[in-house]
Design a protein around this nucleic acid. Structure first.
Lengths: 225, 225
DNA sequence: TAACCTGAGTTAGAGCTTCTAACAGTCGTG
DNA sequence: CACGACTGTTAGAAGCTCTAACTCAGGTTA
């Protein structure tokens, strides 16, 4: 038993090294130039040897994406735990900051998750779960702000489609809407920032990001129609 | 003179055909699988022949991107002209709708412009100009809504960096801030939609998009602090 | 009209890539 | 010890971009 495990351990280690090398390559020259041959060379073996570990280039990429989703979810969950006692608005800001920091610390990984999809990649079920984990961290404090319904049709669709898939989750429509709205706003700023589209515009994207989060929080306060 | 022009005309026509074939391929299988050999075959010639028309794969891609920026700017400008007489809020909505329709009608092109950047691509000056043209169409009606300053530091940065580059353009900080905010929000929804990230979530992205635009417009109304 | 030059296409080939197939050695187990 | 599974090797097919050398047709000029 222990011996069989030993082989598996070495195998897992080699897989991890290959993935680490792959990430280094992606960081250096983009996902398109990821080469199994080059990874092999970095690990001190020939290219075809890697086919003992991954079915092919696509599977390696898929694995990197899947890892990324989980890593991001972990980072956001940690921030959520760290801000546990604070008022909801502060917790949302803390989560958003953690989200952004993760993205900026490893832009290539963020793009791997949310950038232009790789050729034939379809998200497997367990990455969807990790994505949900990230979203759920945001939903908790958002729910506490108890926003009034503001976009009936959109909120109805969100509630019913979620119920169809996961059963009754306890999230109300207004909370879900705030969740996707927050997500799209964060992504709107982050993706353009990471891809360098703000580079020629000479302002600090952090300010825009914070403003978007604050606007979202602000929108939950009762307003005169 | 006429003869020389004739050659040039045929040449330009071949270039256009090559670009059209390239777009078809990108639409079918993504930018990564764009192959000069395949384009050549589609035009009835061999791969290397295309090197008479483009310096290489990258130049072809760059050209497609550049064309895309101009095409998008044209579409938005046309919508701007069509909505000329209406009140600013309606014009903004019309522009946003045109922007979205362009993106959804040819998602691969939208991703070519705003998705994960191609390996070593750096936006040449005239694409920046086209991007500015698109933004400017949005700024005009936004300026009419005469928003009060709300994010002093961000607005200051936008004004000074724009002045450094283009001189005095007449746009005030609040208008510029609304411009980039609107842009990031539209892109946030559109990019996730086009990349299929909403697919499993079962709601109509159009509703979210409209809500974001309306929120932006709404944020320009005077509010109690 | 004849000679010439330019430009557009060809094939050949270098150097990459992914991925398959066949072969060699090594490690762990009955 | 001997067998079997696992991990690496090399060889090679098929594809890619891109360069080099060559052919040929079209238009220009003497």
């Amino acid at each position: 038993m222990e011996n069989a495990t030993r082989r598996d351990r070495i195998r897992a280690q080699t897989r991890d090294e290959a993935k680490a090398a792959a990430l280094r390559q992606i960081a250096a020259a983009g996902p398109q130039s990821l080469s199994l041959n080059a990874i092999g060379k970095e690990l001190g073996m020939t290219g075809p040897a890697l086919y003992r570990y991954f079915a092919g280039r696509d599977e390696l990429l898929t694995e990197l994406i899947s890892d990324g989703y989980h890593d991001l979810a972990d980072a956001v969950s940690a921030a959520s735990a760290a801000a546990a006692g604070k008022p909801p608005a502060d917790r949302i800001r803390a989560l958003a900051r953690a989200y952004r920091e993760w993205a900026l610390a490893q832009p290539h990984r963020y793009l791997l998750l949310f950038g232009t999809p790789v050729p034939g990649y379809a998200a497997p079920a367990h990455t969807i779960q990790a994505a949900t984990r990230t979203l759920a961290a945001f939903l908790a404090p958002l729910a506490e702000l108890a926003a009034a319904a503001r976009h009936p049709e959109l909120e109805r669709q969100l509630v019913t489609s979620l119920a169809d898939r996961d059963g009754d989750t306890g999230w109300d429509g207004a909370t879900l809407r705030l969740g996707v709205t927050g997500w799209t706003r964060m992504h709107g700023v982050l993706s353009l920032e990471v891809e360098g589209h703000f580079q020629t515009m000479g302002f600090d994207p952090a300010l825009l990001y914070e403003a978007e989060i604050n606007d979202l929080i602000d929108s939950t306060r009762p307003r005169p129609s």
